[in-house]
Structure formats: structure tokens, C-alpha cells
Amino acid sequence: NIFRIAGDLSHLVSIFILINTINVKKSAQGISLKTNILYAVVFVTRYVDLLYSYTSLYNTLMKIFFISSSIYTIVMLKKYSKNIQQYNDDFKIEYLIAPSFVLGLIFNHGFKFSEILWSFSLWLESVSILPQLFMLQKSGESQLLTTHYIFALGLYRALYIPNWIYRYFAEGRFDKLAITTGIIQTLVYSDFFYVYYQKVIKNIGFSLP
């Protein structure tokens, strides 16, 4: 359906903006390495099913793309973040990983290793942007491209919400776990979305309070 395609495209766009920004500027300035490490963990743990199940060519190609681009991003960010004197990427990611794992143990579609990993990846994804938002807040202002990247990334999960509503009515399917974590993720972004709307859409520079 249209919401899901739009969500996936938004996700792709966010990655292209990110990689392009890093490569053009040859700098990791303003971009959180920790957030990108978390996303790599999210993709690897969620897409282990590549090894034993097949949905569609689209699905497989997208999964391979998301895993490989997230690892590529980490390599590039590592390379360029060394040159930055004040790199405010100091969010404690263990505070995100450990609770996500516990939530994965409690809420899952069956107490199996693969299901726990899948649930863990959903919980972790919902909060993975926090180091990036934290960094943005600390530095006070940011490059326009970085905010477009964060916006496109947030939009992807937000668009999945109407997709889930559509699927509930069209296919009678709903996944409480995916929907709950998707809503949490969108809520985590809500303050950013508001500021983005105020500053970028209304075209007046960008800075977080």
C-alpha cells in the first residue's frame, strides 16, 4: 500500500542524504556515530531471517541494502569523527540496549531466540535516534541536511502507522508489538517534528531550544 511504499522510500532517502552529507563534507560533524551503530544492530538483529525465510525480492534487496549501508555509514563516520575536536556524541547507549533486550524478553511472539531478537530490534529501533537528538540539542544548531536526514528517518516509521491501520482493515492483520514500538518511535520524534515544522517548513534557520 501507498503508506508503506512511501515509508520505505523515506527510509531510503534518509540514508542517501546521510551518506551523501558525510561524503561531500568529508566530516561526521553533527551526525551521531552511536545512533548509526544502534541502527546497524537493529538491522542485523531484525533481518537475520534473511538466512532462513524469503518474502519477496523487494524485501530481500531492501534488507541487504539497509544492513550494508548502515555498516558503511559506521565505517565512514569512524573515519571522519576522529578529526572533530568537540564531538558531542556522549549518550550512554547501554541505557537503551539493556532495557530493549529486557522488553524483548518480556514482549515477543514466542520465547524463541529469533523472536526475542526480532522484538529487541523493534524496541531498540524505537529509541535509536535519541543519541542523535541529544547531540543536536547539545550543539544547539545543525546543518540543514542533517535535519532533513533525521526528518526523513522519522517520517518512515510515522508513515508505517497509517500502513498498519490500512492493513488492519484490508487484511485483518495487526501486530501489537510492531505498532506499539512504532508509536513510541514516532512520539520520540514528536518534539523534533514540531521544531522541524516551525523552523524548516516555515523557512527560518534551525536550532533546538
Partner: peptide, 10 residues
């Protein structure tokens, strides 16, 4: 309703 996980999504 079918509450199967939506594993066909990304």
C-alpha cells in the same frame, strides 16, 4: 483478528 507478526515489513 489475525495477530501474526508483520514480518513481511522492513
Amino acid at each position: 483478528k489475525n495477530s501474526q507478526p508483520l514480518k513481511d515489513e522492513l
